[in-house]
């Protein structure tokens, strides 16, 4: 069972940031459950988790980081998308910096990994990201932004793969 987490403050944003991910998961033939990040989560129920993005102006999830403490006990893989990337980075003590990306940009893969092998274009929508890394391993960059990283069994991508790169989500599901 795949856990799909909404980080959205407003339900209308879920149509934009959560539904497309759930559709990719369903199309790939996996069962899933959608939970809002403020709901109680039992990490033992799920094999993998995807933490979805939210609106550009939404930062409420960063003020509620205690709601993501369950991640430390989670034994499966996690894919954090945009807001989810920020959550994973913050949980592991990384410093998010002001880094605005709105639109389609080229991603340079630094290290071949199960999600991406070579340069590709992706849709970005964020104001905060990592520019340096201490305990996470950078996997890809967009200019001075680390747009893909890896720590333990958790991946963070600062772009939105559901827009131009659904295969990244599909590859994650197959890990």
């Amino acid at each position: 069972m795949i856990l799909v987490i909404s980080t959205c403050k407003y339900g209308l944003s879920e149509e934009e940031f959560v539904r497309p991910i759930a559709e990719i998961v369903e199309k790939a033939g996996f069962r899933y459950e959608i939970k809002r990040y403020k709901e109680k989560i039992d990490p033992k129920k799920y094999d993998k988790a995807i933490i979805c993005g939210t609106a550009l102006k939404d930062f409420e999830y960063l003020e509620n980081m205690e709601r993501f403490e369950w991640i430390h006990e989670f034994e499966g893989h996690i894919l954090g998308i945009c807001a989810g990337y920020q959550v994973i980075a913050s949980l592991f003590g990384q410093k998010l910096e002001r880094a605005e990306r709105i639109g389609v940009y080229e991603v340079e893969v630094l290290k071949e990994n199960p999600l991406a092998e070579k340069t590709f274009r992706a849709f970005f929508l964020h104001k905060l990201a990592l520019k340096s890394a201490e305990c996470v391993e950078p996997l890809a960059v967009q200019g001075d932004v680390i747009c893909m990283f890896w720590i333990r069994k958790f991946y963070g991508v600062s772009f939105h793969p559901e827009v131009l790169n659904p295969e990244i989500v599909e590859r994650f599901l197959k890990i």
Partner: peptide
């Protein structure tokens, strides 16, 4: 991209409920 950039400049929330 263009809608999001204008909304950002004006400090507006942007909602696209039919996206994808």
């Amino acid at each position: 991209t263009r809608f999001q950039r204008v909304c950002d400049r004006l400090d507006l929330w942007c909602f696209n409920p039919l996206w994808l």
